[in-house]
């Protein structure tokens, strides 16, 4: 059985929907159970990435917002 692994995606400076597209493409390379943290600067990602996660059956783990940056962590489901 494959081990769960953690990954990071740099989507800083990209405007929506590019962070979502990058997330979608990255998730295609990952396995079920893998954890992905997306770093982005467009505040729109705070609604778009969770929406993409919900409709595609993945799982939101956290969304942390600092002054200039977002860190959104998701778990890949099947």
């Amino acid at each position: 059985m494959a081990c769960m692994s953690t990954h990071e995606l740099d989507a800083r400076r990209l405007l929506c929907p590019m962070p979502v597209i990058k997330t979608q493409n990255k998730v295609k390379e990952l396995s079920v159970g893998d954890i992905l943290t997306i770093f982005c600067t467009d505040p729109g990602a705070l609604s778009d990435i969770p929406a993409w996660v919900r409709i595609n059956g993945h799982e939101m783990l956290s969304a942390e917002q600092s002054e200039d940056e977002l860190a959104i962590t998701i778990r890949v489901n099947g």
Partner: peptide, 11 residues
């Protein structure tokens, strides 16, 4: 509102 309408529609 910051939302992607295509994602919103899909949801």
């Amino acid at each position: 509102k910051k939302r992607n309408n295509a994602l919103w529609a899909a949801e």
